[in-house]
Amino acid sequence: MLHHNLITPDTKMADAIHMNYLLLPVINRFEIKLGFGDKTVEEVCTENKVNLSFFLDITNTYHDKSYFPKEKMRTYPVELIIDYLLKTHRYYFDQLLPEVEAMVEELLASCPADCDNLGLIKDFYKKYKQELEYHLKNEEQKFFPYVKALTQLEGTGQSLHSIRRQYNFSYSTHSEEHDNVISKMLDLKNIIIKYLPPNYDTAKGNNLLYWLFVFEEDLKDHERLEDIILVPALKRIEEKFTKN
């Protein structure tokens, strides 16, 4: 497969957004805002002190699902990746989760009568929101600090075992939580697409569904970075220390 349509250092930042407007929240995570004029991606990155190559890989993997230069991405410092992931969490916490919740509430409020069934969808979303928040907080409190501690382990005299105990991080729980987060989002979309009771407001229903699609794409990208880049990096460091 050829990647014709990738963003390069010479692409105008404005053109990158024309190519794929879903990149907007992604570039915001690099503290880059609209109003680029005719500046190229490289110019905007230099101005904002952003690692150009990392920026290109993140935006291109987001833009083109078949593009994922795994080996190259594994060479970035984990702090850089974690910083990006944390910004993504903020986007979920501060924007997507509350906004989607408001959309679910609005959908329910638009229902004239017999709204019990729509209420079920609201309950499902509320529960999902709690689970996702729990998962994200877990990552912030256990997973990311554990990764950081491991990368700084050398020379501290601390053992792998003690760090592991300190952060109490489990690969299997982490990966189960990922599966759960992704598959419930798919469930929610399917319940709405296939089985939504007819007493709802079309515009509000469509709006909710649109944002669920956006949310899902973002989540998948987020999980992919963790599962394919961060977790193997972690395992490599662990192996190194078990051998010594």
Binding site: N180, L186, N190, K194
Partner: peptide
């Protein structure tokens, strides 16, 4: 068949 996996779904 349904496209739904979780118990809650």
């Amino acid at each position: 068949k349904l496209g739904i996996k979780s118990v809650s779904g």
